[in-house]
Structures are given as structure tokens and as C-alpha cells.
């Protein structure tokens, strides 16, 4: 006989969206506060304080990613495919990330065609690339490169660093996510899943976007690549 009186496990997804929103607000206040406090420090103190900003940024990225994944999964995400100027897009990304990079003393080189425009959901792709830059800022030896180019009818966005490259397990996890294989690789899982989801949302006729991780590239370190048709 069924025990009808037993309380059902609460469906946490009902609270998820609003709780994430709330946390996002708190974190963005925290980030603002950290930024204005760190700016006033001496360069060496800035470098030591920068990890606080990095960690807060990471929490913020995770929340944004979870919210987007939740909405896309429930088919609520207003996927907004519009024509964006690459010049604007790159500068937006730089503005979002420049304070952290400068505190860490990292040099960010840009390589893009400023006349180029492309169709994509600006918010999602900005989320993906900012996250990739954040990651790269942790595993490099002082040099990053963001390049945005058209190659064979696709927009190719690369985030490269001069660090030791991705460990084999991360490259494998990247491949698994891209191929849609089930994955459970802890910390890197969410970001990879999000990036791959955003890539796949971008379709043009019979072509679909893709995300991949490589080692090598121009700086010999890790290389995150997003391709949008």
C-alpha cells in the first residue's frame, strides 16, 4: 500500500531561478566593491588581492551558466540571434575582464577584424568567452591572446595562453561534452557543458556551432576555440 502521507522531496528547480537571481545580485555587488577596493592598492598588493576577485568572478560565471542552462533546458531562454559588430563585442569583453588581468599583471593581446559583423547571441557568447579568459588567467605565464576571425564561413573565436596547456583529462572532458557523451568531471564540467550548449544553439542552415580545447596554438599553451556558423 502506498504511504500517501510521506512528504515528497521538494522540487528544487522551482526555487532555482529566483535563488540564482538573488545570489547574482549579491555577487555583483561584491565584485563592484572588490574592484573599487583593489584599484586603490599598490601594484604588489593588487596582485595578491586579485584571486579574491577571480574567485568571486568564478562564482558569478557559474551562476550565470546555471541560469542559462536551466532556461534553455526549459525552452524559456530568449535566444537572440542578432548581427553584432566584432569590434563592439571584443571591447565589451575587454572591459569586463581588464581589471582582473591588470591586477594579475597579465598582458592581453587582441587580434580581430574590426570591420567584421556576425550573427550570434551576444550575451551567451560573451559569457562563454569571458569564462574562457577567466580560466586562462589562472593557468598562464603572463600572456593571453583573444582572436576573432572568419574562417571558411565560420566565426572562429580563440582564447590562447602561454601556460602549460590543458591536462589530458580536461581535453578528454572537452571532447566528451562536445560529442554529447555523459560526463562528470567535477569542476570543469559546468563551464564546458555551458560552452558546448551555447555553441550548439548557434545554427545556420545545416551547420551547427562547436567548441573545442587544444594544446599548442600560437603561444604554445592552452587554446579554447569557439566556432559559430
Amino acid at each position: 500500500m502506498d504511504d500517501n502521507k510521506q512528504e515528497a522531496t521538494p522540487d528544487i528547480s522551482a526555487f532555482l531561478a529566483s535563488a540564482i537571481h538573488d545570489m547574482k545580485n549579491s555577487i555583483s555587488i561584491l565584485i563592484k566593491f572588490l574592484n573599487s577596493s583593489i584599484t586603490e592598492l599598490e601594484p604588489e598588493a593588487q596582485r595578491r588581492a586579485a584571486p579574491m576577485l577571480y574567485e568571486a568572478q568564478r562564482v558569478n560565471d557559474n551562476l550565470i551558466q546555471m541560469l542559462a542552462i536551466y532556461k534553455v533546458g526549459n525552452q524559456f531562454y530568449p535566444f537572440d540571434l542578432t548581427e553584432n559588430s566584432i569590434d563592439d563585442f571584443v571591447h565589451g569583453i575587454v572591459e569586463q575582464n581588464e581589471s582582473l588581468l591588470s591586477y594579475l599583471g597579465i598582458e592581453l593581446n587582441l587580434d580581430f577584424d574590426d570591420e567584421l559583423t556576425w550573427y550570434f547571441d551576444r550575451e551567451l557568447v560573451t559569457g562563454v568567452i569571458s569564462h574562457a579568459l577567466g580560466n586562462a588567467s589562472r593557468y598562464n605565464k603572463g600572456k593571453l591572446k583573444l582572436s576573432v576571425k572568419e574562417e571558411e564561413g565560420e566565426l572562429v573565436i580563440r582564447v590562447e595562453d602561454n601556460g602549460g596547456g590543458f591536462p589530458a583529462s580536461v581535453i578528454e572532458a572537452g571532447d566528451a561534452v562536445r560529442k554529447g557523451v555523459n560526463f562528470s568531471s567535477g569542476g570543469t564540467g559546468l563551464g564546458l557543458y555551458f560552452s558546448s550548449m551555447v555553441a550548439k544553439l548557434h545554427k545556420n542552415r545545416d551547420k551547427t556551432g562547436s567548441m573545442s580545447l587544444e594544446n599548442g596554438g600560437e603561444y604554445g599553451g592552452g587554446c579554447f576555440i569557439l566556432r559559430l556558423p
Binding site: 537571481h21 524559456f76 530568449p78 537572440d80
Partner: peptide, 10 residues
């Protein structure tokens, strides 16, 4: 807005 909605975009 704090969040973009389908109404605003579509």
C-alpha cells in the same frame, strides 16, 4: 532590466 525576457526580445 535585471533579466531579458522573451517579451522584450521576441
Amino acid at each position: 532590466t535585471a533579466e531579458k525576457t522573451a517579451d522584450m526580445v521576441f
